[in-house]
């Protein structure tokens, strides 16, 4: 992780959209970490250092709202 790059956590269960978002954001010079469900995303959030997070509302295991609250 380079210091000057934005680091984002992305939680999206739709793999196609997730993959595209990652590609798009990375091509814009932003570093993205993609998680498929709420629980993994929460664990990833605890272990990582992110500038901000983007959650889908409908997520397996834990929805976006609950994840944001947590």
């Amino acid at each position: 992780m380079t210091e000057n790059k934005l680091n984002i956590l992305l939680a999206e269960d739709d793999l196609n959209l997730g993959f595209l978002l990652v590609e798009f954001l990375e091509s814009s010079g932003i570093q993205v970490k993609l998680y498929r469900d709420g629980e993994i995303a929460f664990n990833g959030f605890k272990s990582g250092d992110f500038n901000f997070c983007i959650f889908d509302v409908m997520l397996p295991k834990m929805d976006g709202f609950s994840l944001a609250k947590k």
């Binding site: 709420g38 509302v57 409908m58 997520l59 295991k61 834990m62 929805d63 976006g64 709202f65 609950s66």
Partner: peptide, 15 residues
């Protein structure tokens, strides 16, 4: 019943 979905509280994880 049509359109009925069992409430899951704040959990929106089943489409």
């Amino acid at each position: 019943e049509k359109y009925y979905r069992v409430p899951t509280g704040d959990i929106h994880n089943t489409k």
